[in-house]
Computed example of a mutant assay.
Amino acid sequence: MKKIVLLVAFCLSIGNVFAQDADKLRDEGDAALKAKNYPEAVAKYGEYLKLTEYKDTVRIFNCGFSANQAKMYEEAAKYFDMAVKYNYNLDDSYTGEAMAYRNLNKTEEFVSTVEAGLKALPGNANLEKLLYSYCIKQGQAAQKKGDIEGAEALYKNVLIASNKKYQEGALYSLGAMLYNQGATTLQKVTPLATTEPDKYKAEKAKADEQLKEAKGYLDKALELNPNNANVKKLVDAIAATLQ
């Protein structure tokens, strides 16, 4: 019986030491965060959360925040995703995770995170702003490289936002890009009208389809904002070309 009592006492002492170690790491993480020593905060919180089986939602969020500040974006995404799963501070947790993926240039994960965030928080201004700025910037970069398909996909991602100005901007980007494609094609093949009429006819048909698709996006942009002068100019130019 004496041995059993001693064993229980030993186990209790180990538990107390464990709790003290965890509390110390938590407090050191809090102190590092307050001092803006973000790498140290990530390290201390990481050890603390591992010891406590990732049950402290406040420190999970704090660890994600600190990781973003320390440019440890993989860690930030991981901890913010935990916070989301705990349904903790969803606005900032989804935003923090999306920012981490943006900074990692992981487009698929970024868009998936924003999309999930907007389902949970419809119309969230932070997420929609992130979506617009990232996808338009990346879409323009893809377009500049000649990756029209990639640019189109990026611009279309913006259309899940509820913000009408963002939708208008994405629709204009889509319409202008396809207009340029069609106009460039026509410019290239026009000299063939007399020398190679069959080839000209086939290429012109492709250009006309591009222009019609462009007009579809631009018409939707005008529905959102009938006073958009840039959109009107392109619509008029397409109408004149397709006559």
Score class of each variant (00 low, 15 high):
residue 229 A to G: 00
residue 231 V to Y: 01
residue 58 V to M: 06
residue 148 I to N: 05
residue 185 T to V: 12
residue 221 A to I: 02
residue 159 L to W: 01
residue 49 L to K: 06
residue 90 L to S: 00
residue 16 N to D: 09
residue 48 Y to P: 08
residue 32 A to G: 03
residue 239 A to E: 06
residue 128 E to L: 01
residue 225 N to C: 09
residue 81 D to L: 12
residue 110 F to T: 06
residue 60 I to G: 01
residue 181 Q to S: 15
residue 121 L to S: 01
residue 118 L to E: 02
residue 165 K to M: 10
residue 121 L to C: 03
residue 231 V to P: 01
residue 35 A to W: 11
residue 219 D to S: 13
residue 128 E to D: 10
residue 110 F to M: 00
residue 169 G to K: 02
residue 48 Y to W: 04
residue 61 F to A: 00
residue 178 L to M: 14
residue 231 V to W: 02
residue 193 A to D: 08
residue 116 A to H: 05
residue 88 Y to I: 14
residue 19 A to I: 09
residue 213 E to F: 04
residue 106 K to G: 04
residue 37 N to A: 13
residue 28 E to Q: 15
residue 39 P to V: 10
residue 35 A to M: 11
residue 164 K to N: 10
residue 148 I to P: 10
residue 97 E to I: 08
residue 198 D to E: 15
residue 105 N to L: 12
residue 230 N to V: 06
residue 222 L to F: 09
residue 60 I to D: 04
residue 100 A to R: 03
residue 219 D to T: 07
residue 173 S to V: 04
residue 84 V to P: 02
residue 70 A to K: 09
residue 149 E to I: 11
residue 201 K to G: 03
residue 198 D to K: 06
residue 46 G to I: 07
residue 60 I to E: 04
residue 40 E to D: 15
residue 7 L to D: 03
residue 18 F to H: 14
residue 127 L to M: 05
residue 108 E to K: 15
residue 209 E to F: 12
residue 242 L to I: 02
residue 200 Y to K: 08
residue 238 I to R: 00
residue 164 K to S: 12
residue 204 K to S: 09
residue 29 G to W: 01
residue 149 E to R: 13
residue 185 T to F: 07
residue 51 L to A: 15
residue 145 K to G: 07
residue 54 Y to W: 11
residue 55 K to L: 12
residue 141 A to S: 14
residue 207 A to D: 00
residue 81 D to Q: 10
residue 202 A to T: 12
residue 197 P to W: 07
residue 223 E to V: 07
residue 51 L to S: 08
residue 16 N to T: 05
residue 77 A to N: 09
residue 126 N to R: 09
residue 1 M to N: 13
residue 104 L to E: 03
residue 212 K to P: 02
residue 51 L to K: 13
residue 176 A to M: 05
residue 242 L to P: 08
residue 243 Q to M: 11
residue 208 D to S: 05
residue 193 A to Y: 11
residue 120 A to S: 12
residue 1 M to L: 10
residue 75 E to R: 02
residue 240 A to H: 05
residue 59 R to H: 14
residue 229 A to I: 09
residue 96 G to S: 08
residue 81 D to G: 04
residue 86 Y to Q: 11
residue 176 A to V: 07
residue 89 N to W: 02
residue 74 E to R: 06
residue 119 K to A: 13
residue 56 D to I: 07
residue 222 L to M: 03
residue 204 K to A: 09
residue 39 P to Q: 01
residue 214 A to V: 01
residue 203 E to D: 15
residue 236 D to C: 07
residue 216 G to N: 14
residue 217 Y to T: 03
residue 30 D to W: 13
residue 218 L to G: 00
